[in-house]
């Protein structure tokens, strides 16, 4: 099917009736062909499904099995299997550490996603407004930021914010803020999180911005004309034309960003290893430090499993909406 049918899919909800003219009428020959190749879509899906099962499904099952085991260096080296039942889970859920980390992770994710969506949307709208040349330039900058390898980016940020020879401290000192000349950005929880947030927001703005820019390109010009004839100002035409078109995209990108920030591991770990004093450990880092780090692999597996559950919980609302829509479509 062409792009146009999809557009109506998102568009009909927003502006019923208006876009009927755009719809390509479904081909008459469609039904006959569909019956003959009924198994084709499934065959085509097979390679992807297989890869998913092997690369994700199997490790997930393995991880689940591990989470019920007592697996420390001794058991690992001697290849012993010692079952612990639910003890790993009760140990994790019973300790205060875990809940502190959960709370921290949720707050961290919220702050980051709000910032990302806000700034990303603004940049996306800016892209739509810019002239050709400036848009290309901005697009280039966004794509380069998006293409930067995570660890490389983290290292650059570490250097920027280095205590002794960092550019940021140097600039702040030059600008007259002399107490910042030797400031240790990685010395407190808040300042470490600030640097990490800056990095993560910077890394994800391109995705949101380009996505939303793409969304705005699907809005037919006539709608704005109609709106202005009806006397709508800039704000009004944004809220009643632009925004309804963007809403499904906003939903989808927010959902993806929640996942992306929630699971962010390399940025946080490489920046300061969850320090100072384990105060910037989010769930994935906590799972790593308790599991492979402290060599309690069973415990780490239990934490990572709980992490999946929490993430599912956080994104349940969106998942439910999506699944419901699918049922409706069936």
């Amino acid at each position: 099917m062409s792009v146009q049918t999809e557009r109506t899919d998102t568009g009909t909800a927003a502006a019923p009736g208006v876009r009927k003219t755009d719809v390509t009428p479904p081909g008459d020959t469609g039904s006959a062909r569909r019956r003959g190749g009924a198994s084709a879509p499934y065959l085509l899906l097979l390679p992807a499904l297989l890869a998913t099962v092997i690369l994700l499904g199997w490790p997930l099952v393995k991880n689940g099995v591990l989470s019920f085991q007592n697996l420390n260096p001794r058991q690992l080296i001697l290849h012993l299997t010692e079952w612990r039942g639910f003890d790993n889970y009760t140990d994790v859920l019973g300790g205060s550490d875990f809940w502190k980390v959960v709370q921290r992770t949720v707050v961290f994710t919220t702050v980051n996603v709000v910032l990302i969506m806000l700034l990303g949307t603004l940049v996306g709208l800016l892209l739509a407004r810019l002239g050709k040349r400036m848009r290309l330039l901005l697009m280039l900058g966004l794509v380069l930021a998006w293409a930067m390898p995570v660890i490389a980016a983290t290292t650059v940020y570490q250097w920027l914010f280095a205590q002794r020879f960092g550019v940021v401290n140097w600039l702040l000192a030059k600008a007259g803020w002399s107490s910042m000349a030797d400031y240790n950005w990685f010395g407190t929880q808040i300042s470490t999180f600030s640097v990490i947030t800056l990095l993560i927001v910077w890394q994800s703005i391109p995705f949101v911005a380009i996505n939303l820019y793409a969304a705005t390109t699907t809005i037919p010009k006539e709608l704005y004309e109609a709106a202005s004839i009806d006397g709508a100002g800039t704000w009004k035409s944004f809220t009643s034309v632009t925004f309804p078109f963007m809403r499904p995209f906003l939903w989808a990108t927010t959902f993806l960003e929640v996942i992306w920030v929630f699971k962010a591991f390399p940025q946080i770990f490489a920046m300061n290893r969850g320090g100072p004093d384990r105060l910037t450990e989010t769930l994935p880092i906590y799972a790593f430090v308790e599991g492979p780090g402290n060599q309690h692999y069973g415990m780490g597996a239990a934490i990572s499993f709980l992490t999946i559950l929490i993430l599912l919980g956080l994104t349940a609302y969106y998942l439910r909406t999506v699944l419901k829509q699918e049922e409706d479509e069936l």
Partner: peptide, 18 residues
């Protein structure tokens, strides 16, 4: 998008040992 999301989510948290 939902499929991508779920796959991404699983990828992020799975895997330990081997």
């Amino acid at each position: 998008i939902a499929a991508v999301g779920v796959a991404g989510m699983l990828m992020s948290v799975a895997a330990c040992g081997g």
